[in-house]
Design a binder for these strands. Structure first.
Lengths: 327, 327
DNA sequence: GCCTCCTAGTGAAATGTTTCATGCGCAGGG
DNA sequence: CCCTGCGCATGAAACATTTCACTAGGAGGC
């Protein structure tokens, strides 16, 4: 520590003004022109920087938002983190990032830590129910915990419908919906709801396989597919997967079973994950608007008037072919 | 704000002990058994949480580390961010993440912001020279700014050598090294140095194409390759690319030119990016130990004794075939 | 039994802000 | 020329901690 960081007191002394005047200058509170100039000059000369911790102590405001994600290794989460960070920076906020590996204990622990670190709010994509402070602004992604906690999500229901409509439009006559995921309720469940609703309305047969945590995914899916095969042909000709990752796994399993995609079966995933370094998709898919979702989370979290915040914001999704459908 | 957050004073009162005693309990300073129990009970009853901002104000220590990356959308950066975050969490530190889009202004701005927010240190992967405080611990990734600022990097030189050795071992007789990147010096430059050193030592012809920022990458590479083609054949039969992303682009260009990989040309990249959702590589490549690098950054940054910190730590890389070589 | 030493709890001072009650000085009106 | 207001700079108090100089009380030795 060469020179201790200069304080407002130092600046006040250097500028020959009072402490409160310096404070006003840095808070944009009007102050006599000559005073402001003196203060700004002194501050520049000393290399003064506001001490956010002292400020936070007084104001209980820190211009920091905590973001809780399962991880940042997954491209969709990475995109969310990236855009949330940029959206926050634009508003002169900083991002405190916590990764939880979807561990409920860690998830809750993060929320508790945020209380200590006094972030101004939390944006959280968590897989488990949380205890959230009454007075700590929280925005959930894909998950709503309480009536007064807003949730931002893609239009999962609409996306499910869209997937079904596309598969039917592409000539499928016997559909299936496959999903993985935790058993705790989530907005993402609506993907299947939307899909099934279309099938029911159009009286199209629709098989459903839900795999919950703990089960060995690939094996379960393989058996499901085998059960639907007769003499090397699958009776199902269109599959909607709850995520692109799952769609990718299913492709591998189908290939193992000697089935061709999209010739024998068409597949639509969900997320819109793109191949690294390009725009290429992993599969035909329903694209989630990651950037828009991030932006919306930040908007909701930092909204001045927190009295009439919507409980749920659904953002429009879109379909894009990615080689696993016959366009 | 329902109930104001309880303070140490409240806990002291509730427990019937002095303020200093409460402080000691929460700092792990030995205190009479009976006192400790009283304090812990009172704290639990009131739901007390340490206010890190008041603590930071006194101690100038915040248990927060700032991480500055170009972005978190790139899989390698995402992996770094992920593992740094976990390594920090294990040490009870939090991560303040800044993304810069490699913009020099933003990069410098981040460093300045960190001074305000009083993080205990910075881990930064930046593409431009930075002004870093004398007394703010800093660890650079792939880049050294000053003699007293440690740099963590993969063994880029060794990786370059390894790539050359592999290509020769696989029968190549005429090599090329292609790179992109900024013109400011970086540890990653050594990838080419190592590669060329092997070529020189073994008297193998080695073409080199360095593309700097601003030039239109694909076009430059295409022309380079065209210049080396005669009657539909490339005289070069082994290419080392400075990154996997570049290797991928080159593959596309080669395909456009009607050349087959790895039959006509073998390619080795650098990074070890894996396909989403699996272990599959994008190309044969030199793998950077992202997790180890992250861990090392954190270790160096938080080292108690900052007097004899190494200026450069090179971590071992490894080669893995990924379909663009003839193994 | 008394004095001393040591252990351990106490509470005031200090950290760098913001905020707010004061009061100074200047202008305008009578 | 004096008085009233008003605008605005002032600096003390408060924020929730840590730290440190004190002090009280108990133990041990003579």
């Amino acid at each position: 520590m060469k020179n201790a960081m200069p304080t407002m007191k130092d600046v006040a002394q250097e500028a020959g003004v009072a402490l409160g005047t310096v404070s006003k200058v840095f808070n944009g509170i009007p102050v006599g022109e000559s005073y402001r100039i003196k203060v700004e000059e002194a501050a520049r000369k000393l290399g003064y920087q506001v001490n956010q911790y002292a400020r936070g102590l007084k104001t209980n405001k820190t211009n920091t938002v905590a973001v809780i994600l399962p991880g940042v290794n997954h491209p969709f989460f990475a995109a969310l983190a990236h855009h949330v960070c940029e959206a926050l920076a634009r508003r002169d906020y900083r991002m405190l990032l916590y990764v939880t590996a979807s561990n409920p204990e860690i998830e809750q622990n993060c929320v508790n830590m945020v209380r200590q670190n006094k972030a101004d709010g939390i944006i959280g994509l968590t897989y488990n129910p949380l205890v959230v402070d009454e007075d700590l602004p929280f925005v959930g992604i894909d998950r709503s915990f309480r009536a007064d906690i807003p949730c931002v999500a893609a239009d999962n229901y609409g996306g499910g419908r869209l997937a079904a409509e596309k598969l039917l439009e592409l000539g499928c006559t016997h559909l299936a919906f496959l999903r993985t995921g935790s058993s705790s309720p989530s907005e993402t469940d609506k993907r299947g709801d939307g899909f099934e609703a279309v099938c029911r309305a159009q009286q199209i047969p629709c098989e459903v396989l839900r795999r919950n945590d703990g089960e060995d995914g690939p094996e379960v899916f393989r058996e499901f597919l085998l059960a639907h095969m007769a003499e090397g042909k699958l009776d199902i000709d269109g599959i909607f997967c709850s995520t692109d990752l799952l769609a990718w796994r299913i492709q591998n399993i189908l290939a193992d079973l000697g089935l061709r995609v999209p010739e024998d079966v068409q597949i639509i995933g969900f997320d819109g994950i793109r191949r690294f370094g390009g725009e290429e998709l992993y599969c035909s898919t329903i694209i989630q608007p990651a950037e828009k979702m991030a932006e919306t989370c930040v908007d909701l979290l930092l909204a001045k008037d927190r009295s009439n915040i919507p409980a749920l914001v659904c953002l429009p999704v879109s379909y894009a072919p990615g080689g696993t459908t016959r366009e």
